[in-house]
Design a protein around this nucleic acid. Structure first.
Lengths: 362, 362
DNA sequence: CTCGCGCTTGTTTACTAAACATGGGGAGGA
DNA sequence: TCCTCCCCATGTTTAGTAAACAAGCGCGAG
């Protein structure tokens, strides 16, 4: 007879209302267990403070663990405003990690040096690393990869760096934005850049110029603005620009949604109507973009897909029997149409003649 | 009441002594079914001559077939000289298709119009398409994709086209070539382009200029040559250039190995020593490159990996429950060092002063 | 104290119950 | 007679368990 002191998996099963086999499957991340049942089991484990009989000190399942490094060097882009997309990345990674019998652990770094981060990996009981590369430089990436674990970087992309990347396809996304503006017949297409230098912001700006050329559109130098990337900073910088007598373009593509919110807020205070006076398209489709005034047309990136593909590529690296060529993946994005880009609200600017262009098939 | 004439899966289940769900799993190759049980079910199916209600006339297993379109529009690059890399693509695709329970069928097209190719797909009993995109234009790609099957294009890559691609990373590969030449201290780095316009050739040429700039190297306009892309054509064109008094650069990166063979053969006939007088690096690592005189330093692309990844992405598309963002993948490559690039054979050109540059870590 | 055996604990395999999705057939209406 | 719509039969999928299996712990005997 077991004592009342020593818990077994059968006690957890009874407490959770499932079979012992199900508890085992949950604890080992195997089988097809629904989220509801999994939660119930894990709650029973926590409540009863169950420790498996064969538990190792702390190496529980460690040899099959993937570590996600959530790295925020300066917090300008990896911050609470963007926690929803970090969460989407994690959802995508977690689902696929579980499917492939890995445990995904998440380790956050805020302000730590990259060498400290690299050092935290040394000797860690993990099989591979997925690193959030938003705020990482090329050298950062080489340093993390130099630790020697199979590694995939997400939310960043560098040419000629021999590493594995999964990132959004900024170029294709910006092409969709600018095609949209061109379809509206806008001639002065502006861009709101960010003071902060991250890879994706830079890629987006490069894509702006490249696609303007590709679409046969001219860029006016003073239609390219640069403002702070926090909501408050974007708002203040835009106010200052407006106070400085900014001559508005027909429309602006903003580097990301946070910048677009601040930009729109300041425009509103100066009596500028969006999209009647100036159209705006953002990038990220944060949840708030559906509820801004007006709701923001924006680019939706499938962050879950990025997370999923990162685990796919990482698993290949882990299981490869020989040296693998690096793989760089770009995940496409969709334009989410809302009110801010001006489709249904004609621009009431009688002092300016708009030349109708041939509209691409839409 | 069902008649004795019309069998259902429930009759088979009864006859085999299993549940209808198990019969379904057996017939669809899913689930974890033991060999004993599977045999029992299949015997009952055969004995009772069961035909599923939704059976198509000749579609036995056909719905799980992937079709590889081997498309040669003009044969300048998709030809016998390159059959080894087509074969590598197929090997990679085939192994992964089998692993995912697909049949890979290969259909060759030589000189046919793209609309005829698209038409051959209409109504075909297949689940998805992988198309060799080497000689395809953007419009070709849109036409094939317009048929409506899940489709992945390999050996090509287009920005802003909303399609799925798996291609070699030309930019990273060319960076390795030029880094190598720079490491040798070469100042006049030449490029041998191809008369034929395919995406990869164009990407390779773009990458040449881009990486020369990135590495702080100057391009001399007359060091960029353009010759025919067949072995014979490359040889003749080079002979003509030499007869026209070509002033040779220190080294040349050739668009592909076939071009490099013809180029080297003609140089040899004019008494030019490779790599003593001029160094050469090719691209593709065809088997012959190991046995040329001298053996050719070249770029090795893992074509099997490309084939493998194409099936991976295609399977995701086929199984997706909702519209998927396009995915564009670039597979890295390795520089295969042989004799042709001049590492161990100093250039005996006393009439020209070579300025030593600081060598990057190698 | 050590060794061997039996039993407990946890895991895995292979199947099914039940829910879900699809399409065929029948009935009704034009 | 033909066409359309709705319902139900058929087949598939999801998620859980029974039962078999594997490993190791604990207890008893020498």
């Amino acid at each position: 007879m077991k004592t009342t002191k020593k818990l077994t998996i059968r006690d957890i099963a009874g407490a959770a209302g499932v079979s012992p086999a199900t508890v085992s499957l949950v604890l080992n991340g195997k089988g097809d267990i629904s989220g509801v049942t999994r939660t119930r089991v894990l709650e029973a484990v926590a409540r009863l403070n169950y420790v498996p009989r064969s538990a190792k000190g702390s190496g529980e399942g460690g040899s099959e663990t993937l570590r996600f490094l959530k790295i925020s060097k300066h917090g300008h882009t990896v911050n609470r405003d963007h926690s929803v997309f970090i969460s989407d990345y994690i959802d995508g990674m977690s689902a696929e990690a579980i499917r492939r019998n890995y445990t995904l652990e998440v380790v956050s770094f805020e302000g730590q040096s990259i060498s400290a981060i690299a050092e935290s990996l040394t000797g860690a009981p993990i099989r591979g690393v997925i690193a959030l590369g938003t705020e990482l430089t090329e050298d950062d990436i080489r340093l993390i990869q130099g630790v020697g674990f199979p590694t995939v970087f997400i939310d960043t992309f560098y040419d000629v760096v021999d590493a594995n990347f999964v990132d959004m396809n900024n170029e294709d996304a910006v092409y969709k934005v600018l095609s949209r503006f061109r379809a509206h017949g806008f001639e002065r297409i502006g861009f709101v850049a960010s003071h902060v230098d991250t890879t994706n912001f830079r890629l987006r700006q490069d894509a702006f110029f490249k696609n303007m050329a590709r679409l046969g559109l001219k860029v006016r130098e003073d239609d390219v603005l640069s403002i702070e990337s926090t909501h408050e900073g974007a708002y203040e910088d835009t106010r200052m620009l407006m106070e400085g007598g900014l001559d508005l373009a027909d429309c602006y593509f903003c580097t990301n949604d946070i910048i677009a919110y601040g930009f729109m807020k300041a425009l509103k205070e100066f009596g500028v109507q969006v999209p009647a006076d100036v159209s705006i398209i953002g990038f990220d489709n944060l949840p708030q973009s559906a509820t801004t005034e007006p709701p923001l047309t924006t680019i939706e990136v499938s962050k879950r897909k990025i997370g999923y593909l990162a685990v796919t590529i990482l698993d290949d690296l882990i299981n490869a029997s020989e040296n693998q060529p690096s793989v760089k993946m770009l995940v496409g994005a969709d334009l989410v149409l809302r009110a801010s880009d001006g489709r249904d609200v004609p621009r009431p600017a009688p002092t300016r003649l708009r030349v109708a262009k041939q509209l691409p098939a839409e």
